[in-house]
Amino acid sequence: TTVKLGDIKVTFDNPEKAKKYAQKLAKIYQLTVHVHGDTIHVK
């Protein structure tokens, strides 16, 4: 599962960890989390 934020891409083996990371980023940057299959976009 890949978390994308602009040019930053972080890949996790564990989808749950990816989701938590995405939510953490979203909170920090006051953005929202969008899940598209294996990719989680923070924008």
Rank of each mutant, 00 (worst) to 15 (best):
T1W: 15
T2Q: 06
T2F: 08
T2C: 13
V3N: 02
V3H: 03
V3Y: 02
K4S: 08
K4E: 07
K4Y: 14
K4H: 11
K4P: 03
K4R: 12
L5N: 03
L5F: 14
L5Q: 02
L5Y: 12
L5H: 07
G6S: 04
G6Y: 10
G6D: 04
D7I: 14
I8N: 05
I8T: 07
I8L: 12
I8K: 09
K9F: 13
K9V: 13
K9W: 14
K9I: 14
V10F: 13
V10S: 03
V10I: 14
V10Y: 10
V10H: 04
T11A: 07
T11R: 13
T11K: 11
T11E: 07
F12H: 01
F12S: 00
F12D: 00
D13C: 14
D13A: 12
D13P: 07
D13S: 13
N14F: 05
N14D: 13
P15I: 11
P15L: 11
P15Y: 14
P15G: 06
P15H: 11
E16N: 08
E16Q: 09
E16V: 09
E16R: 09
E16W: 10
E16P: 01
K17Y: 09
A18K: 00
A18H: 01
A18I: 03
K19H: 12
K19F: 15
K19I: 14
K20S: 08
K20G: 05
K20Y: 10
K20V: 09
K20C: 14
Y21H: 02
Y21Q: 00
A22Y: 04
A22V: 06
A22H: 01
A22S: 02
Q23W: 11
Q23V: 08
Q23K: 09
Q23A: 11
Q23G: 04
Q23F: 12
K24F: 15
K24P: 00
K24N: 07
L25E: 00
L25S: 00
L25W: 06
L25F: 03
L25I: 09
A26C: 15
A26D: 00
A26N: 02
K27Y: 12
K27M: 11
K27P: 00
I28F: 11
I28R: 13
I28W: 12
I28H: 08
I28T: 07
Y29M: 06
Q30A: 09
Q30Y: 08
Q30R: 10
Q30V: 05
Q30P: 02
L31H: 03
L31T: 04
L31Y: 06
L31R: 02
L31S: 04
T32F: 09
T32G: 06
V33N: 00
V33M: 09
V33R: 00
V33C: 11
V33Q: 01
V33W: 09
V33P: 01
H34L: 11
H34I: 14
H34Q: 12
H34R: 08
H34T: 12
H34N: 06
H34W: 12
H34M: 11
V35I: 13
V35N: 05
V35K: 05
V35S: 05
V35Q: 09
V35A: 06
V35C: 12
H36R: 10
H36V: 14
H36G: 05
H36F: 12
G37Q: 06
D38W: 08
D38K: 09
T39Q: 06
T39G: 03
I40T: 02
I40S: 02
I40G: 02
H41R: 05
H41I: 14
H41Q: 07
H41K: 05
H41D: 07
H41V: 14
V42K: 01
V42M: 08
V42C: 09
K43Y: 14
K43G: 14
K43A: 11
K43R: 13
